[in-house]
Design a protein around this nucleic acid. Structure first.
Lengths: 349, 349
DNA sequence: CAGCCGGATTTTAACGTTCAACTCGGTCAG
DNA sequence: CTGACCGAGTTGAACGTTAAAATCCGGCTG
């Protein structure tokens, strides 16, 4: 027919179903279904006829019907948190993006829900799974004593955590990034660059991520024998620009001032960068600086930074939650972050 | 610990269906359905019997079956963009959060998809709607000459835009925030505080949002007769902290230095704040400062800022996309942002 | 007392898809 | 010649829900 070959003709009325295609191609509904799902089962000649009918009519299999029949929704859910001033906030949307992308790669879509508290999060997850809306859920920012995993385990909800979970039974799957290793890599890098006095700007004590990063500094410094008595060059404070500048200033004013600074966030590192400038010295030349999380500002500031493998995290989570065959895997995956070296730490001591 | 009495007993096998509830309550399936959807249609006594069976079994209506029968998925979709260094990036996740929340309020869930380019975004939207996976889609960050609206209009996909669209036919619904008005409110505020020389730090020319904000400064200044010849105190540059500091320094070093600065972003304002300090002056006392977008850092810095009514935007979009009765509304909604006054601009000139 | 009303509930059918079982020609081994 | 078997396709049933029509039943009217 003379109809435009590119744009499929709009169907006469309502949505196009498999039955419409069957009629148009002169085959039964089941054959159309087979063409869509098991193309090798139908003779090439027939297949082509069906496929062109599909293209002509712009047929798209109905998701609800498919989900009903196969009792699998092809969806996973994750809570979207309200934006907070926490430095990790901007990680959240990168994470969701990665999750959406990784999900699509295996035919799963991502559904978001907003809830106020943990209680509601669990209730919502249970509801979503019970109603067959999603196959499983992803828990963001799980901490060792998090109450959510065991609640979901009890309710029989398939889930995977982003964040380590102190799991006695090993029944919970999680993916996490090794924060301590991330800082350790930085220390290696700086030590290899000839630095001996390497300072650390950290978050206030008492939070998992911050504590892990602080621990990474201690162990890595110790491993290199750089932790001698008077050289405890680590300080901790609020994760703000100002606080970073203040902490850096404090260290740089000391007699045994560090020649390099490792920060637990790019925000702190940016503050430190200003502190260096305030002293009339040049970041990257007089004092090496490294941040964490590789935020957009790190690139702008030419600041070395530790990059979390977010896309990989997304892939691993989806992989664990939606294995090609079988049930949810209870695998524990610890990924290593990567150091992005930029001008702020390229210079040797 | 003993089993919590609040938790419903897990069903013996597989998911609980309406039929299981019917048997347990000694009624027909349809009666159960009525209890769920039109409670007033069934006798209170029967209703209670059904409801307790529902609670006992932990029944949750199957979404796919419901969607199939009612041909309505109860979902809307929106693209999640990759994180960019653009200052509006952090607005994106606030927006998604608002959308998710507003959707839930009217029984719609939010589905996310990740795509590389506009072409794929449109294709994905069409697919999602054709397959009945979602009722409609939301377009984020729509610009006047955006190609997406007309493509979706052609494909018959219901959608609503966040961002104005130059729409000849008036067939497209959109919601937007009046950027010019936002800056104007700031100028009012500062003028009311006795300021005469009010500077503006803007984004590079050529982008809708930045240009709108710049325009807001010009018109508001003009309205107050503060735009006299030599007082063109507006400059524009990259949306970075450094750039903000540099631009502010440039203005403050002039003979006719402004006594107040309006910035097109909190990032620029934060840079300006530092520039003020570098000159040995006090932000909020010697020089008033106002930012834009009310990011978490604005609160930390005690920086006045213009807050976009994101939750309201979400509500309006959902309202237009999922009207209680009828089809998608083609309403154009322009919302006014709100000025949050903090220490950085409370002092009078 | 037949007829009818109206509320409460049940039965029937349908939404679009896919699995399982079946039909139809034809081939090939025993 | 018979029957087992194969590929290609069809038919029937089922997934869980809900709108519409049908049924049931006690009470009320004429």
């Amino acid at each position: 027919m003379a109809k435009s070959p590119a744009r499929p003709a709009a169907p006469r009325s309502g949505p196009v179903t498999i039955a419409d295609v069957a009629v148009a191609a002169g085959v039964s509904k089941q054959t159309v279904s087979n063409v869509m799902n098991y193309p090798e089962k139908v003779r090439p000649q027939t297949r082509d006829r069906v496929l062109s009918a599909v293209a002509d009519l712009g047929f798209q299999p109905n998701r609800a019907a498919r989900a009903l029949r196969s009792s699998s929704a092809g969806m996973i859910a994750c809570r979207i948190e309200p934006v907070s001033s926490h430095s990790l906030a901007h990680l959240h949307d990168r994470f969701l993006h990665a999750l959406a992308e990784a999900g699509q790669a295996v035919g799963r879509h991502l559904m978001l829900f907003a809830v106020d508290d943990v209680e509601n999060e669990v209730v919502t997850c249970v509801r979503l799974v019970r109603s067959g809306a999603v196959e499983g859920v992803v828990l963001y920012n799980v901490v060792p004593d998090d109450p959510r995993p065991s609640m979901l385990l009890d309710a029989g909800v398939p889930f995977v955590c982003f964040g380590r979970f102190s799991d006695s039974a090993g029944a919970t799957g999680w993916v996490d990034v090794d924060n301590a290793a991330g800082i350790a890599v930085v220390v290696e890098h700086l030590a290899a660059g000839g630095h001996q006095r390497i300072g650390f700007l950290g978050f206030p004590e008492g939070h998992r991520v911050g504590d892990d990063r602080a621990r990474g500094w201690v162990t890595a410094m110790d491993r290199h024998g750089l932790l001698a008595g008077s050289h405890r060059l680590d300080v901790r404070g609020e994760d703000t620009w100002i606080s970073g500048a203040r902490m850096a200033r404090g260290l740089l004013d000391r007699a045994d001032a560090p020649t390099a600074l490792v920060a637990a966030s790019d925000t702190l590192a940016a503050g430190a960068m200003q502190a260096v400038r305030d002293l009339g010295r040049t970041p990257g030349e007089d004092v090496a600086l490294v941040g964490y999380d590789d935020t957009p500002s790190a690139e702008v500031l030419d600041l070395s930074s530790v990059r979390q493998p977010i896309p990989e995290i997304g892939r691993r989570i989806v992989e664990a939650l939606c294995p090609p065959d079988g049930t949810v895997l209870s695998v524990a995956t610890l990924l290593a972050p990567e150091l992005i070296v930029r001008g702020s730490s390229r210079h040797r001591a």
